[in-house]
Amino acid sequence: MNDRHSMISQPLRRPSAGRIASCLGLFVLGLVVGGAGSLVQAAWFPGGLLLALAGAAGAFLGGAWVTGGRAGAVAGVAGWLLSVILLTASRPEGDFLFAAGVGSYAYLLGGMAVAVICATLVPVRRPGGR
């Protein structure tokens, strides 16, 4: 049989403990980067916005590099997204972190665009490939 067909029929393996720990660490890093970026983007507009987006891109691409695949980027993106969602929700006290302005929307939409770009452009290792 063809070597390609033998690769397809291999069952999936459970991720190692180190891979799970690195993905959890990258998730926490995404939480921190999302929170810090939300503070920085409003402080020094437009430089703070660019710094926050560059930090998010660095965390996502660094996570992909650490894990050697998309899982690291996705773990960081998930943490960033959770952080941003929690910070955009208004609380009963009336406090919120994102104002209704161009910078806040640029950070939210730009961060999502950076997340998609980083998660899709990561080179993926193929089983049995070089």
Rank of each mutant, 00 (worst) to 15 (best):
M1G: 15
S9C: 00
Q10P: 00
L12Q: 15
R14D: 13
P15K: 08
A17R: 14
G18M: 08
G18A: 14
A21I: 10
S22H: 08
V28T: 03
L29G: 02
G34C: 08
A36T: 09
L39R: 13
L39Q: 13
L39V: 05
A42V: 07
A43R: 13
A43E: 10
W44F: 13
F45K: 00
P46E: 03
G47W: 15
L50H: 01
L50W: 14
L50E: 01
L51N: 02
A52P: 02
A52G: 04
G55N: 03
A56I: 08
A56Y: 02
A56N: 08
A59N: 00
A59M: 05
G62I: 04
G62K: 07
G63H: 07
G63T: 05
A64Q: 10
A64G: 15
V66C: 03
T67R: 05
G68A: 00
A73P: 00
V77H: 00
V77Y: 02
G79E: 04
W80C: 02
L81V: 11
L82F: 03
S83W: 05
S83Y: 05
V84Q: 04
L86W: 06
L87D: 05
T88R: 14
T88E: 09
S90Q: 12
P92D: 10
E93L: 12
G94W: 08
G94Q: 05
D95M: 11
D95G: 15
F96W: 10
F96I: 02
A100H: 12
A100F: 10
G101L: 06
S104E: 12
S104A: 15
Y107H: 13
G110I: 14
G111N: 06
M112F: 14
A115I: 02
I117W: 15
A119E: 04
L121G: 06
P123A: 10
P123D: 01
R125F: 07
P127N: 12
G128D: 04
R130V: 10
